[in-house]
């Protein structure tokens, strides 16, 4: 069984969000980068768990990005995975990234492709579905539970106000979120081992992006909180009704 885990690099969850160059570029100043949490905590860890159950499982990690991504790829390899592939390019839009991954996935003949539910920077939530369409594979999105029995996967997917249990034969693309696995801290053995695992760098295929970010805006700052004393509960409710008009 071969698993491909898609790994994205994102700013840390607590990074200050600011823009430069006339609001056209995200300001990298003082920003720490991490593996996109959904890719790391859920997709990657679940793949590692499957390998722990069946040692013959092969896990490849894939990232689309420039050499500055190698640090987070090594960190991902410290958690698990046999080797990594980096498509050496600047990530364009989701269509561009998914095209590059689909190209590699086609060659690799993977049984299972795992992604996080979205990246925490651009919140596209679309790379998984796009890969599935490029490869004409079934796609199960927003998985909260993933189990495998032979070549049949049972996947619970979140829906509005509930959940749906799906059964699907491999190969399949699954986007993962909380519930699929638990975050793991890499141990010393993992970190040492990651240094010598293969990190293959491949050149991108020529694909045009379909969209382009022109500029960024920050939300208007809040007016400031209007405080009421504990005994003014009724005044608060009146303000919600008469001023904010939300009840």
């Amino acid at each position: 069984m071969k698993i491909l885990v898609c790994i994205s690099k994102t700013p840390d969850t607590t990074a200050k969000i600011a823009f430069t160059d006339n609001n056209t570029k995200f300001s990298e100043e003082g920003v720490q980068h991490i593996i996109n949490p959904y890719d790391e905590w859920y997709a990657l860890v679940r793949a590692v768990e499957l390998k722990e159950k069946d040692a013959s499982t092969i896990i490849h990690l894939i990232n689309v990005g420039d050499p500055s991504n190698d640090a987070i790829i090594r960190k991902a390899l410290a958690i698990g995975g046999d080797e990594a592939i980096r498509v050496n390019t600047t990530a364009g839009d989701d269509y561009y990234v998914a095209s590059q991954i689909a190209e590699i996935a086609k060659e690799g003949q993977y049984d299972l492709i795992l992604t996080g539910k979205e990246t925490i920077d651009y919140n596209g939530a679309s790379v998984g579905g796009m890969i599935a369409e490029f490869l004409q594979m079934p796609f199960i999105s927003f998985a909260t539970k993933f189990d495998l029995e032979g070549t049949t996967a049972t996947v619970t997917r979140e829906i509005e106000g509930g959940a749906e249990v799906n059964e699907v034969s491999l190969p399949v693309v699954v986007s993962c979120q909380q519930g699929v696995a638990e975050q793991r801290i890499p141990n010393m053995r993992g970190i040492m081992g990651a240094r010598t695992k293969p990190l293959k760098v491949v050149e991108p295929k020529d694909v045009a992006t379909l969209t382009e970010i022109q500029s960024f805006d920050l939300p208007a700052p809040k007016q400031g909180v209007k405080l009421f004393a504990p005994e003014q509960a009724e005044d608060l409710v009146k303000a919600l009704r008469d001023e904010a008009k939300v009840i």
Partner: peptide, 21 residues
Amino acid sequence: FNGKAIAPRLSVRLKAGLVTG
């Protein structure tokens, strides 16, 4: 959930640029 599951596929099938959210 359903919109975010279908839209990426449709984007690729129609080769149509996608903006989510």
